[in-house]
Design a binder for these strands. Structure first.
Lengths: 222, 222
DNA sequence: CGAGGGCTATTACTTAAGGGATAGCCAGCC
DNA sequence: GGCTGGCTATCCCTTAAGTAATAGCCCTCG
């Protein structure tokens, strides 16, 4: 669909980050590169999502820690709305859970804010070309996370779920029974069972307990 | 059958309060709501406990200040008898001690009698769905109580569990069924069930899913 | 327009989970 | 020695969970 050859048209980028100074820094950095063009910037996650869907940039640089909607939620919302460009998380957090959750939720990269500007540009260029980029300092951590995944042959993926199935999963992860979920969502228990069956199959899980645990660990709940 | 509410089983409620007039008021209020059904009412605490255990309503509305057994004692007796539905305290007392004591003893809500009928219905509906409800005027008081919290006996605590129960909980939080846990620990499935039953009671939880979620969030797993 | 997907619902069935009760065995403790 | 608590086990019973198949309704996409 979009360019794989950067010399003709520059790759379009967007940044969503609630720190104005940091945004300014990135803007300045990108101005020096004629193959990377910043087409949008905002500090408001909601606005950022709308903007990304409107501008359809090749790449969205997304802060993980923001007031209101956090980055993870924003990422989910973007994917839900079928935004098909690259999303690279941009954060100070090097916690394993955050990295893993981001990648599980469809992030195409995870860059730390303390990286060198030259590295940053290089990584963004790679990301715009479709390559997954991860800050080098996270590789050890990532390896650890992968090792802990030995029980999951096929990594479950939220994206395969429908909106309704995600809703059911969230309620389920809150410990609710089918009956209570049914009452809460105003549908019958039988229908809840159908949704649960479907989501278990899609996620390749064998029980609601596995689903609940996975949802909590991946940050799908709340 | 209506299209807006396809779930035709209303939540069942019971009221235990020694003021006949007030009961009458609640009864009238609930008659107007087709998703809330009053299945029992009494002014006698003893009778109320027996009735609750017999009818097993989804929710018991329990007066705090009653002659004979007071509401707090009634609450304890209900939980002791393994009544698993919701219990919402219903009272004129806004004393911090009463509120805290009720919540510590497993109440799922605390509503003041001076609330507006519309609010009442809304809150009861929420409570029947499994959400904790507290009169809005109590929130400040509650925040204070939380800050002053020194010892919370009903706060789920791993240390109240025996070594074996902790082991079972860990396996459970891994998504394993009773049968698999049994095989892994080389005991019978029946024994696993006994342990699960005990740990659920100790942690004041209602299902293995709640236990699993709690364990994961508290970091008890692996 | 027809096809497909998503959401809803229903019937029928099997298996898992949970509660109550009781009991044997073994350790540590007063 | 008796008592208690922890671990094991079993029987019985009810409810919850999960599977399978079928189907209607609505929306979207080609």
């Amino acid at each position: 669909m979009t360019l794989t050859n950067a010399n003709d048209t520059p790759a379009s980028l967007m940044i969503i980050d609630d720190h104005p100074l940091l945004r300014r820094g990135v803007i300045q950095l990108l101005e020096l590169e004629d193959d990377l063009e910043l087409v949008g910037e905002t500090g408001d996650p909601e606005e950022g999502i709308a903007l990304a869907l409107k501008l359809e940039p090749d790449l969205v640089l997304l802060d993980l820690n923001m007031p209101g909607i956090n980055g993870l939620e924003a990422l989910r919302r973007l994917r839900e709305a079928n935004y098909s460009g690259r999303v690279v998380m941009f954060t100070v957090s090097d916690h394993e859970d955050d990295v893993v959750a981001a990648l599980h939720n469809g992030a195409d990269g995870y860059l730390l804010k303390d990286m060198e500007p030259e590295d940053m540009v290089r990584q963004l260029r790679q990301a715009a070309l479709g390559r997954m980029v991860i800050s080098e300092s996270l590789t050890a951590l990532l390896a650890e996370a992968l090792r802990n995944q030995r029980n999951a042959p096929t990594t479950p993926d939220v994206h395969s779920l429908t909106q309704r199935e995600r809703e059911i999963l969230q309620q389920l992860a809150g410990g609710l029974s089918n009956k209570l979920i049914a009452r809460k969502l105003d549908i019958t228990e039988g229908t809840v069972k159908v949704h649960v069956k479907h989501l278990l199959k899609k996620l390749n899980l064998r029980s609601r307990v596995e689903a609940a645990v996975w949802a909590v660990q991946a940050g799908i709940d709340h």
